[in-house]
Nucleic acid binder design. Structure first.
Lengths: 125, 125
DNA sequence: ATAATAAATGCAAGTGACTTGCATTTTCAG
DNA sequence: CTGAAAATGCAAGTCACTTGCATTTATTAT
């Protein structure tokens, strides 16, 4: 179903070769450098697809502002600096147990959670 | 500084008298019923103010979709049904310890976290 | 290879939530 | 009561993202 297109490949390359999480716009600009005719629409459509396929992660930097990173196998969450927005991954999610407990308490079937930590990095403190 | 206006009072009343979290638009419609000339701008400005004052909480229902509830003293997080969007509060945050550990590991000073659980409620399962 | 076909793209226009600028109204401290 | 700061309403603007649609492109079956 999903086909291998130059655009999709270019988007993945950009994400893969950049250490920090990138916004859709940043990815657009970077892909456009190699691929001048690419449309922003294509970026959005591919980011959605790749997120759904869990190839990349969509990360909330703050309200209505998202970035994308490669999905590492480990269950990462991220900590974002409120000042410079530098972002660092954090391994180990202590939350799955809690989720199970909440599920028992509420009767909900919990299928996802989203944890975001905010603070100041060493430089910005 | 902050003055007591009819509009602000009406907004608070609406939030206080409704069990479930409300979106800005819903609040707007409900306030308008009592106060036909109110502007949507006013709703947004007041919701921001009240959130900042921690009188109410801004709750992420999903990407780019927020609701507001009264701020109870306890540290609540919420669980949102992916199907009907019914939302239930969850007491006790097991996360503060983890945050302290992450702070030690990364050198960040963690000032906030945002946890959101998603799943299906009993009815929607 | 080649043609058929389903997916993906690019473009233009649209949406929706929220913001901003500004003139007017309202609250409240003195 | 009065004046200054705050808040409001209106209109226009912004910004991220979406949608419709005609065209192009990657894969599949022949």
């Amino acid at each position: 179903m999903a086909r291998k297109t130059k655009q999709r490949q270019a988007i993945l390359n950009v994400i893969q070769n950049t250490a920090k999480p990138l916004s859709a716009r940043e990815i657009y600009e970077m892909v456009k450098a190699q691929h001048p005719s690419v449309a922003l629409t294509t970026i959005y459509r591919n980011l959605d697809l790749l997120t759904q396929q869990q190839v990349i992660c969509k990360l909330r930097v703050r309200d209505n502002e998202y970035s994308y990173v490669m999905n590492t196998e480990e269950h990462w969450h991220y900590i974002v600096c409120l000042s410079c927005h530098q972002t660092v991954g954090v391994v180990k999610c202590p939350f799955d147990n809690f989720a199970a407990k909440v599920a028992a308490d509420t009767g909900y079937e919990i299928v996802a959670h989203d944890i975001q930590l905010y603070g100041y990095c060493r430089n910005c403190r």
